[in-house]
């Protein structure tokens, strides 16, 4: 399955994406287009104050865009609630 198809089928799910440059992204798939997937990041920096609106051009409803061509692996992120 292509990364595009995987992302399309798993909108709303928490995933771990590793890009070819070795960077790990964790987040919830928000939307996907033929060139990018947008995730709401789950990131330790998020709550620390240096992260939020504006970071990575990140804003409400937009998410963090990752080029599909840059993705090495994508997998479901283990998740649960208390």
């Amino acid at each position: 399955m292509s990364h595009y198809d995987f992302c399309r089928q798993n909108v709303g799910r928490p995933v771990k994406i590793v890009t070819h440059d070795g960077i790990v992204h964790r987040g919830i798939i928000r939307r996907v287009n033929p060139s990018k997937v947008f995730i709401d990041p789950l990131d330790a920096r998020r709550g620390a104050g240096g992260y939020g609106y504006g970071f990575f051009g990140y804003g409400r409803g937009l998410g963090l865009g990752i080029a599909l061509g840059a993705i090495a692996t994508i997998a479901f992120l283990p998740f649960f609630f208390w």
């Binding site: 798993n10 909108v11 709303g12 799910r13 928490p14 964790r26 919830i28 709401d40 990041p41 789950l42 990131d43 330790a44 998020r46 709550g47 939020g52 609106y53 409400r60 479901f76 998740f79 649960f80 609630f81 208390w82």
Partner: peptide, 21 residues
């Protein structure tokens, strides 16, 4: 895998993220 609703507010995402961290 769990599926989260489409529209999460920034406040909800902050809490979700803190929970995950």
């Amino acid at each position: 895998p769990i599926t989260l609703p489409q529209h999460l507010s920034m406040e909800m995402l902050q809490t979700l993220n803190e929970h995950f961290q």
